[in-house]
Computed example of a mutant assay.
Amino acid sequence: MNDAPHWPAETSEHARLWLAFPTGGYTLGDTAADAHEARQMWADVAAAAADFEPVTVVVDPSQVEVAARYLRDDIDTLVAPLDDAWMRDIGPTWVHGQRGELNAVDWVFNGWGAPAWARWGKDSRIARTVADAAGTPVVSSLLVNEGGAIHTDGEGTVLVTETVQLDRGRNPYASKERVEAELARTLGARKVIWVPRGLTRDYEEFGTRGHVDMVATIPSPGMLLLHAQQDSAHPDFEVTRALRTFFEGQTDASGRSFDIVELPAPGILEDGEGPVDYNYVNHVVVNGGVIACAFGDKAADERAAAILAEAYPGRRVVSLDARPLFARGGGIHCITQQQPAPATSR
């Protein structure tokens, strides 16, 4: 029997998908129109996912009546205090134990490296709250980490980013060796791939400083979907070319080189704040489906949906205009966290 935990791939069977309802601050914005846009966006993602699997949305006590007006009746809710609404980062990371049971890893969350603008006192307790509601024991970790900062192929390969886990605002005394040891203890990581950096926008004031779920994802072992900015006028043109070169030199936990499939960026290069980080990598896989980002670029959106349909055979791709999410700092993957189904004994 293998004593190490097993972190299943996002394509494994889900028991449930979790989200958090927008509560306040920059996520809701300054106007009633901004608040409506945010609430509707989160509700649309929840509804799209609920067509495939059970969905629970964590709702702050102050938002219960508002959430009821936006969320579909077949979506469950859990009332708990929230600062923000990025469930991928504040929720637990579920792993399988020796007998296939679920355990929930509770990372330390400090608002993406303790920036002056962030508030995280309530969000830092959400992983344990969600784990308790799901009836899954908690595995505590002292590593400051977020769900959007890690990714697995389900076979022991884990992607991380040098500028996230080694960020001084997160883990000032960490080394690669210490991080890898903790990921082995909590997730069963056998091979940690240190991605050198993330997208340009992610290093601005409200960014995460390099979350991997804006750059790459592994739809099946040995295959890697990679964001590709194809316009040389965008700063990520050089970034994504360098990332491709990096991944071409990597192997996974089983020693395989990656079959790299590019997901070309949409043609939109800027918004009111500067160069965008619009990407199709930031999708969420659900039972029988994929909830994907769209950006109002019909040709690029359709091309990305076709690539995703081929990468995830047998799953129906549903694309949602994710620009309201990206304007607030993330994408569809960022606001969701999957709870895997229990597995048989290993």
Rank of each mutant, 00 (worst) to 15 (best):
T11W: 10
V286T: 07
G113E: 09
D271V: 03
D236Q: 00
P266V: 12
S62R: 09
A189H: 04
D60Y: 12
E204V: 08
L19H: 00
G91W: 00
S319H: 07
A35V: 11
N171F: 06
H14K: 10
V195L: 12
P219C: 04
L166V: 10
D34S: 07
A184I: 01
V195M: 14
V57N: 10
L263R: 09
A48W: 10
G113F: 08
A4V: 03
Q337T: 15
R241G: 09
M223F: 04
P221N: 10
G267Y: 06
H151C: 05
P5T: 01
F246Y: 00
L142T: 11
V261C: 00
T27I: 14
R39S: 03
N110Q: 03
Y280L: 05
V179C: 04
G147V: 11
A322R: 11
D259Q: 04
A327L: 13
A299H: 03
K191V: 00
E273F: 06
V239E: 06
R190C: 06
R185T: 13
V138Y: 14
E10K: 05
M87L: 11
A327Y: 09
A20L: 06
A305H: 11
G148Y: 06
E10P: 08
E238A: 12
E13A: 04
A116E: 09
A68W: 15
Y278K: 02
P5E: 02
A116Y: 13
V45E: 09
F206G: 03
E248Q: 12
G249A: 11
K191L: 00
V58W: 03
W7E: 08
A304P: 14
I193R: 00
L28E: 02
A341W: 01
Q230I: 04
T336P: 13
A322C: 11
L263S: 10
A294W: 01
E146C: 12
H211K: 15
G289T: 08
D301M: 07
L224T: 06
D213P: 09
R178V: 09
V55L: 09
V59S: 02
G207M: 09
A114E: 11
H96G: 10
A49F: 02
D76C: 03
T27H: 00
W112K: 13
P196R: 09
P235S: 12
I126T: 09
A48H: 01
P266M: 10
T245G: 14
L187P: 02
A311C: 05
E270T: 00
F246H: 04
S140K: 14
V192A: 02
F246S: 01
R178G: 08
S175A: 13
R125N: 08
D76L: 05
H6P: 05
H36S: 08
S254F: 04
G29W: 10
